[in-house]
Design a protein around this nucleic acid. Structure first.
Lengths: 138, 138
DNA sequence: GTAAGCCTTGACGCCGACGTCAAGGCAAGG
DNA sequence: CCTTGCCTTGACGTCGGCGTCAAGGCTTAC
């Protein structure tokens, strides 16, 4: 199949596939007219890349998976190098999530404080009764 | 004080302050020689911006806080517009954290599966006894 | 006098993963 | 023959928040 069809089947664009090729991932055969041609193996390879990209992996981080598939292994993560990337990514994600949770907590505190200091209530709530409803949220 | 001193006191660089000025935040007076001059209010304003930037706010999102301070309010978040930014940010962070946790879980699962499918154990563990240790981790 | 150290504006560089446009080739259908 | 729709390469644009360099002005210290 040619580049347009492969792109569509993988839910991406020809430009993206050419970009991957320029980065050394996803090489292509050529027809006599110079058109790139791909087979089902290339589709699987591309799907592997896209899956990892959707996870937020950088392109370079997908390379071990690609190499692994190219080496004939059943899956992109059937190689130690790929698993090492998994591990690094999990650690990175844990760290990032932790940071974001800390920021979220901080901003949450500032929000509550700022709301409390505002003269008028933040939004029409609470001021209806006397002290009911204080632990509910919508 | 001039730009270098302000930058240092805020833990940033002159380039950054000029950039903020180009974006319409943090305006400066000028000496006869054309040098930018700042006062303590400018420092507070800049600190507000830096704090939010460290939280991951985009520059545009700091604008309501700056406007609020400029309007003479005691804090950058003493205005409804700033509080609205807080709220949007909290929601955005919650969404992002949720996404990252989902990705983390997915990658974690793939990692365990890939490790299990590897011929040799992932790291020297588990294979010592027969079936002990199966729920421990390092 | 001149070197050091501050400042000015202007403009290009960077990063990642492409989008978009330009100019042109090839094949099929009417 | 001509249009349509694929494809090709090349090259510049995007976004955010600056870094870095160039060329030059001002002031102070030696």
């Amino acid at each position: 199949m040619r580049i347009g069809e492969l792109a569509e089947r993988a839910g991406t664009t020809p430009r993206t596939l050419r970009y991957y090729e320029s980065r050394g991932l996803l090489t292509a055969r050529r027809t006599e007219q110079g058109y790139r041609t791909y087979d089902e193996d290339d589709l699987r390879l591309l799907q592997q890349i896209r899956t990892l990209q959707d996870f937020g992996f950088e392109l370079e981080e997908t390379r071990p998976f690609v190499d692994c598939l190219r080496a004939g292994h059943p899956a992109g993560d059937s190689c130690p190098a790929s698993i090492a990337v998994y591990r690094r990514k999990v650690a990175e994600l844990d760290g990032l999530i932790g940071q974001l949770q800390a920021v979220r907590a901080q901003v949450g505190v500032e929000l509550l404080r700022a709301e409390a200091e505002l003269p008028h209530g933040p939004e029409p709530r609470c001021e209806l009764g006397t002290e009911r409803d204080t632990e509910r949220e919508g």
